[in-house]
Simulated scan of single mutants.
Amino acid sequence: MAKEITDLTTIDLFSDERRPGRPKTNPNPRSVQIKINKRNQVKRDRNNGLKRIEFKVHLSLFEQLEQLAKTQKMSRSELIESLLIESLAAQVK
């Protein structure tokens, strides 16, 4: 019997062949890769003089921030930083 690549009924003939696909480039599982990448991101941010701040806001405020960031064509993080800088500058005056 001839071996045909398109023959799916005799799939056992192809069990030793490698299927095409993306080659595995990292020996670590995905969960470990994510932890390593996050740790590297925190180090990069620290070297750039950035510090992480987390806080919770109401959904309505979040949506307003999101909309304002879109209209000003900047990220939400950049918008919040600029608002904080403006507020602190006004306090100093």
Rank of each mutant, 00 (worst) to 15 (best):
A2M: 12
A2I: 13
K3R: 12
E4L: 15
E4K: 15
T6L: 12
T6M: 09
T6Y: 12
T6N: 12
L8T: 12
L8V: 13
L8A: 10
T9L: 12
T9W: 10
T9C: 08
T9P: 00
T10K: 14
T10M: 12
I11N: 11
I11F: 15
I11V: 14
D12S: 08
L13V: 05
F14C: 05
S15N: 13
S15H: 14
E17L: 15
E17G: 08
E17C: 14
E17Q: 14
R18G: 10
R18P: 14
P20V: 01
R22M: 08
P23A: 02
K24P: 04
T25F: 04
N26A: 05
P27A: 09
P27I: 08
P27M: 07
N28L: 13
N28A: 09
P29M: 02
S31C: 06
V32L: 10
V32W: 02
V32D: 03
V32C: 01
Q33P: 00
I34Y: 03
I36A: 05
K38D: 10
R39E: 09
N40R: 09
Q41L: 11
Q41N: 03
V42Y: 10
R44M: 09
R44V: 02
D45H: 11
D45I: 02
D45R: 12
D45Y: 10
R46C: 07
R46Y: 09
N48E: 03
N48W: 04
N48R: 11
N48G: 03
N48I: 01
G49M: 03
G49N: 01
L50F: 06
L50V: 01
E54S: 13
K56C: 05
V57Y: 01
H58S: 14
S60W: 11
S60Y: 09
L61A: 06
E63P: 03
Q64G: 12
E66K: 15
Q67P: 07
Q67W: 10
A69P: 03
K70D: 05
T71V: 15
T71G: 07
T71N: 14
Q72E: 13
Q72P: 03
K73P: 05
M74Y: 00
M74W: 00
M74P: 02
S75K: 06
S75D: 00
S75G: 03
R76T: 01
S77N: 06
E78G: 06
L79I: 04
L79C: 02
S82P: 04
L84W: 02
L84T: 04
E86L: 14
E86G: 13
S87T: 12
S87D: 13
S87E: 14
L88Y: 08
A90I: 14
Q91P: 05
V92I: 15
V92L: 15
V92P: 08
